[in-house]
Amino acid sequence: MSVCRVLVVEYGAGLWGAQRYLLRLRPLLRRHGVELILAASRTSAIAEAWRADGGRWLPLPDPGERGVRGPDGRLSARHVLAEAGRTWRSAVTLARAARACDADVIHGNSHWTHLEVALAGLLGRRRTALHLHEENEPDLLGRVRGVAVLLAGQTVAVSEAVARSLPRWARRRVTVVRNGVDTRAIRPAETPAAARAQLTGDPSAPLVLTMSRLDPRKGVDRVIRAVATLPDVRLAIAGAPALDPANGDRLRKLGDELLGDRVRFLGERQDVAELLHAADVLVLASRQEGLPLSILEAQAAGTPVVACPTAGIPEVITHEMTGLLADADDLDDLAGSIDRMARDAELRRRISARARARVERDGDIRGQARRIAELTLRLAGRPA
C-alpha cells in the first residue's frame, strides 16, 4: 500500500494541546498508511520535538506577530491589509512546499493556518484538510475561518461545540472527531507519598491540581480564588507559560497573596499521569476550549474532575456521573464543587470509575487515529 503524505502546517508557539495531538497521532497514523510531514518554523517547540521524535520536517519562515487589530484593540485597516498580504505569501510558500515533498494533502492544524492552507490547496492543486481545536469567535476572523472551511476539502472539529461555533453556513462541512488519550499508558494507580509531597507542603490535606497554559482564558485565577475560600485545601498548578509571560507573573502574585504556601507553581511538566495520581481532584475553569486533553487524561488516570461547562466539556462530563460541572461565573459554586469533591471519598470513587469506563469506551486515541486516517485516506482518494 502506498503511503498518503500529509503536509501539516503548524504555527503554535508552544507544546499545547493542538501540538501534543500531532505528536501523539503521528506514529498511529503511520500504521494506517498516513505519513505526517511537519511544516513549522525552526524556532518552534513543535519542530524541535518533531525532529527529536524522528519525524520529517520542512522549515517555514517564522510567522511573527499576527493580528488584525491595532494597539487599541479595534480592527485596523492597515493590519487587515498586512495580514491579507502575509496570508497570500504563506499560501504560495505552502503550495511550493507541498509540491516539493509530493504531499497528497495539506493540513492546517492551528488557527492562523486555516485560510492559507485552503488557498495553498487551490494554488498547488492539492486536497486540503483543517483541524479546529478551539471554539470559533463570532468576529471577522471567525467569519474568515468559515470561508476557509468552505474552501477546504475536509474539516474536523474536536467537539460538537466547536463545530457549532462556526458560522451557520459553514457547519455542514464539518466532521466531529473528539480528542483521545492513550488509555493503556494512563491508568488508575496509587502514587507513592513522596510524589505527593513534591506537590504540597501538607500531603495529608486535600490537594487540587490544575493543568493548563497560564493564559487568561484558562481561568487559573478563578481556581486560585476558589481554593482561597477553602482554608485547608492545597493547590498545585502545572502549565506552560502563555504568550504573554506577564500573566504568569500576575498569577504567581495572586497565589502568593491569597494562598501563600498553600499553592505551588510546577511549571511545564511532562509527567502528567504522576501528577494526576498524586492529586485528589483536577479542576479546570477555562472560558475558551475545544475538548481539553487534561480532562480526558484525568478520566483515564482515575482522577475526578471539576470543570466549567465550556465548549466540548459537557460532551465528556455528565454532571454528578462522570464529574462535576460548576458555573464559570459563580465563584461560590466552583469553590463548593471543589470542596465537595475533595472531601467526599465515595463521590470520588464513584465518579472516577464511571469516567474511566467512559474514556475507555469513547476516548481512546487509537479510535481517534483510526477515524482521522479513514477521513484522510478518503479525501486523498485512497483505500482505507
Rank of each mutant, 00 (worst) to 15 (best):
E135K: 01
S159Y: 12
L22E: 12
A307F: 10
R350S: 13
A170H: 06
V227F: 01
R184L: 13
L243S: 11
V177G: 02
W57T: 11
R178W: 09
A47I: 05
N109D: 12
L36Y: 02
A120R: 01
R361I: 00
A157C: 11
L29P: 02
I351F: 07
W16Q: 14
D249E: 15
R262H: 10
A118C: 05
G142T: 04
A152P: 03
A82E: 14
A238Q: 05
M211I: 15
G219R: 09
V223F: 05
V105M: 09
R96W: 08
R252L: 13
S286N: 08
P216D: 04
P167F: 06
E257Y: 00
V117R: 00
A328L: 02
R187A: 14
R74E: 14
G124Q: 01
L130F: 13
E274V: 11
G70C: 04
R358I: 07
L199W: 08
A161H: 08
M1I: 15
V117E: 03
A238S: 12
L36F: 07
A242S: 15
D261S: 13
R96Y: 09
Q368R: 08
E297V: 04
V105N: 01
L123T: 03
K253L: 13
S204K: 09
R366C: 03
D72S: 10
L23W: 10
R348S: 10
D249H: 14
P188A: 04
A226K: 01
A163M: 15
V181D: 03
G336F: 00
R31C: 10
Q299W: 04
G33P: 06
A246F: 12
G302L: 03
T229I: 10
Q270E: 15
V281L: 14
A345T: 08
W88F: 12
R269I: 10
C308F: 06
E116V: 11
R343M: 03
L81V: 15
T87P: 00
G239Y: 07
S2I: 15
T183R: 01
P203H: 04
L58S: 00
N179F: 07
H114G: 00
A98C: 02
D362H: 07
G142K: 02
A13L: 14
R234W: 13
G180Q: 08
T210C: 12
L293Y: 14
A45G: 06
R89N: 09
R354K: 09
L60F: 03
I224Q: 07
D102Q: 14
V233A: 11
H133L: 11
G239L: 10
A240Q: 13
P304H: 08
R5E: 12
G255T: 08
T87H: 02
A279K: 09
A152D: 08
L379S: 05
E360R: 14
S204N: 07
G381S: 01
V147A: 04
A328W: 00
L29W: 04
V144G: 01
N109M: 05
G248L: 07
L75T: 03
Y11N: 05
L207F: 11
Q19A: 15
A39T: 11
P27A: 05
G323T: 08
D362E: 15
H131P: 02
G201E: 13
V283K: 04
R127L: 06
A100E: 14
A369N: 03
R348V: 10
I224C: 02
G180P: 07
T318W: 00
A369E: 04
I365W: 05
R348E: 07
A148P: 03
T43N: 09
A197S: 11
G260M: 10
